Computed example of a mutant assay.
Amino acid sequence: MSRLENQFTVQFWGVRGSIPSPGPHTVRYGGNTPCVEMQVGGKRLIFDGGTGLHVLGQSLLRQMPLEGHLFFTHSHWDHMQGFPFFAPGFIKGNHFKIYGAIAPDGSTIEQRLNDQMLHPNFPVPLQIMQANLNFCDITAGQPIHINDITVETAPLNHPGEAVGYRVNWRDGAAAYITDTEHFPDRLDENVLWLARNADILIYDCTYTDEEYHSPTSPRIGWGHSTWQEAVKIAKAAHVKTLAIFHHDPAHNDEFLDHVGNQAGEEFAGAVMAREGMVLHVPVSATISESCPVGNLSA
């Protein structure tokens, strides 16, 4: 058995929300929109197809042929705008299974990915992609099984609906929970369930509490949460590592440094998600392998 088949890693390819934000003031954390890759027991699971998916795709071109599973939380542009630029999707011999819930208007994830590549929005249609694309409609609340990996799902509180995911393998777990807005008077039971005892919780921390409750420009009802609420969830769910994610496009590196310092004071396991960051989920060892220790690398 290869070393990769005994590992559970999480790599961030896009950590920004709403709109890509490249420039000199976002270099350290990155400006690409959401894309997180998990390599779990030799399987590649990809969460969301923001512009970070393009960067991931370029890195995968030397690994042909490819198989992977791509999970969409929802189809707002910042979570799917990288899909038409995912180079491995255009290469025959690659295989991708693509998961997404049916939208409130009845459209499937295949229809929505197809529609964003139609004229006048894009020069070539989805059908030009030569990889084998297998689209799967899912229902939030029902698990997905990929060999010995179980992906649990739950609905999130977001305009137009969204799905949160939790990946379970051996005795390790990582939760991917974005885009979601907290409730004013209680912790979201769906979020708590997905996050329960997770080794890694990736959570939507677009705003600070001050921005969310701003007297001049409140963000209430916009579908996103705060790092302060993330800390509450992490503590209540007994999470080991909290990855603060989906950074607001107006938050530059210095601002995010400040958020990271504050969050770290409130929760020792808090880290700021940044492009290129890799987190390791510790999992039980097989007969000839030692158990990897959870750590953080750039």
Rank of each mutant, 00 (worst) to 15 (best):
L201E: 09
G221D: 12
L192F: 02
V239T: 15
D199R: 12
D209T: 12
T178I: 13
V271A: 04
E289Q: 15
M272R: 04
Q228S: 10
D188S: 11
V281P: 11
H258T: 14
H280P: 00
H213Y: 14
M277P: 00
Q262W: 02
W227D: 04
H251F: 13
L201G: 08
S284N: 14
A270V: 01
D209E: 15
E265L: 09
I244S: 07
Q228G: 10
V239D: 06
K240N: 14
P249G: 07
I177E: 00
D248E: 12
D185K: 10
Q228F: 04
P249D: 02
P184N: 07
F267C: 00
F245D: 05
R196A: 03
Q228M: 07
E211A: 11
I200F: 03
H213N: 15
I202R: 02
L201Y: 12
W222I: 08
M272F: 00
K235G: 03
A243L: 14
R219W: 06
H251I: 02
V239F: 03
I202Q: 01
H280I: 01
E211Y: 01
N261F: 05
H251V: 07
V259Q: 09
R274D: 03
Y207K: 08
V271Y: 04
T180A: 09
A243P: 04
T226Y: 07
K240A: 14
L187A: 11
E229C: 08
L256V: 08
D248Q: 13
H280V: 05
Y212F: 15
W227Y: 13
T226D: 03
I200L: 09
M277Y: 04
S217C: 11
T206H: 05
A198K: 07
E189V: 14
F245I: 07
F245W: 10
I233G: 00
R196I: 02
V271K: 09
A195C: 12
R186P: 10
S225I: 10
P249R: 01
Y212N: 12
D204H: 05
T208D: 08
H182Q: 15
Q262D: 03
F183I: 08
L256A: 03
G260S: 01
P249Y: 03
P249I: 05
V283I: 06
T206C: 11
L187K: 11
D179F: 09
T208W: 11
F183T: 07
N261W: 04
T241E: 06
H182P: 09
G276A: 00
A236D: 05
P218M: 05
C291Y: 06
C205I: 11
T178M: 12
T286G: 15
I287M: 14
H224N: 11
K240Y: 08
S288A: 13
L201H: 03
R186W: 05
